[in-house]
Amino acid sequence: MTAALETIGLEKRFGGLVATDKVSLTLEQGARHALIGPNGAGKTTFVNLLTGVLPANGGKILLGGQDVTGKNQIQRARLGMGRTFQINQLFGAMTPVESLGLAVSERRGAGADFWRRIGTRADIMAEITGLIERFRLTDVMDHPTRLLPYGKQRLLEIALALASKPRVLLLDEPAAGVPEAERGELLETLAELPRDVSILLIEHDMDLVFAFAERITVLVNGALFASGSVAEIMADPRVQAVYLGSSEHA
């Protein structure tokens, strides 16, 4: 079966600094895969290469077997690559219903129609309702996003990413900034994401990583350091020395 996402010898240099050092990673169909590493490991650079924010200096990126290395962010998104960000990218004055309505309508090619005739498209409203319920936003669906608890904002951001119907979803530290009391709801929602979406989770919260991931890849100094099942990574003394046993996570 063709991998959902694959990198082959991916490289990124900033002058004399090698930020991504010939990284080859395979994200299988339906994967729940985590990418971890200490501060400065190059995780964010790697994600920016995958999504087209940064151009690669070498190697290839295959999305569903298709070479997307030379494609831009919009082209990759249209081919099925979605992402969230460490700092959320939301419109504070809009409600979750409005935000999701716009995202769903734009994907369906009816963006202007949504704003002119909100609530009149049964197919769009059904999809919005499904996302609101899946992401536990029913109680805040009509509240301005800026007033939502931060955990709810994170859930909305993931809902917006899923509204684009991605085949591959990159979650960049979804638990960052979320209070402890709200993390349980976030983890439960992540666990219920549809299996037809292959997920790469970049996260420093190891409780979340171990609860969510089925496979883990470790980056150190921009290079692939280890990869395996959760049990294998937890038991790897090299990983414990450079990351799991360290007080510094990123």
Score class of each variant (00 low, 15 high):
residue 87 I to S: 10
residue 95 T to C: 05
residue 130 G to F: 04
residue 157 E to A: 07
residue 150 Y to T: 12
residue 143 H to M: 10
residue 114 F to Q: 01
residue 127 E to Y: 08
residue 111 G to Q: 09
residue 92 G to E: 02
residue 147 L to K: 14
residue 142 D to Y: 07
residue 106 E to R: 07
residue 110 A to L: 13
residue 97 V to P: 02
residue 130 G to R: 11
residue 115 W to D: 14
residue 140 V to L: 06
residue 89 Q to H: 05
residue 143 H to A: 13
residue 131 L to T: 09
residue 149 P to S: 14
residue 93 A to Y: 05
residue 93 A to Q: 06
residue 89 Q to R: 10
residue 156 L to H: 08
residue 126 A to S: 13
residue 96 P to W: 04
residue 82 G to I: 02
residue 97 V to E: 00
residue 111 G to F: 00
residue 116 R to G: 12
residue 83 R to K: 10
residue 142 D to E: 14
residue 155 L to Q: 13
residue 106 E to C: 04
residue 91 F to C: 00
residue 100 L to S: 03
residue 97 V to Y: 03
residue 149 P to W: 13
residue 140 V to T: 14
residue 86 Q to M: 00
residue 142 D to Q: 08
residue 123 D to H: 10
residue 122 A to T: 11
residue 84 T to M: 03
residue 125 M to L: 09
residue 98 E to R: 03
residue 156 L to A: 11
residue 104 V to G: 02
residue 88 N to P: 11
residue 107 R to E: 08
residue 104 V to L: 06
residue 82 G to P: 02
residue 132 I to F: 04
residue 152 K to E: 14
residue 149 P to R: 09
residue 143 H to E: 11
residue 132 I to K: 01
residue 115 W to K: 08
residue 100 L to G: 09
residue 146 R to Q: 15
residue 84 T to F: 01
residue 148 L to K: 07
residue 99 S to C: 00
residue 127 E to T: 12
residue 145 T to S: 14
residue 133 E to N: 03
residue 147 L to D: 15
residue 142 D to C: 05
residue 107 R to V: 04
residue 146 R to C: 11
residue 113 D to I: 07
residue 145 T to E: 08
residue 101 G to I: 00
residue 117 R to M: 12
residue 121 R to N: 15
residue 138 T to K: 12
residue 116 R to A: 14
residue 148 L to I: 10
residue 109 G to F: 05
residue 104 V to C: 03
residue 143 H to F: 15
residue 143 H to W: 11
residue 134 R to L: 09
residue 158 I to Y: 13
residue 80 G to K: 00
residue 107 R to H: 11
residue 117 R to V: 02
residue 157 E to W: 04
residue 127 E to I: 06
residue 78 R to A: 00
residue 125 M to P: 11
residue 124 I to N: 13
residue 134 R to A: 15
residue 100 L to K: 02
residue 128 I to K: 02
residue 88 N to Q: 07
residue 151 G to C: 10
residue 130 G to H: 05
residue 124 I to F: 09
residue 147 L to A: 15
residue 107 R to W: 03
residue 108 R to N: 05
residue 77 A to F: 05
residue 147 L to S: 15
residue 93 A to V: 09
residue 81 M to L: 13
residue 153 Q to E: 15
residue 96 P to K: 06
residue 106 E to G: 00
residue 112 A to R: 11
residue 84 T to L: 02
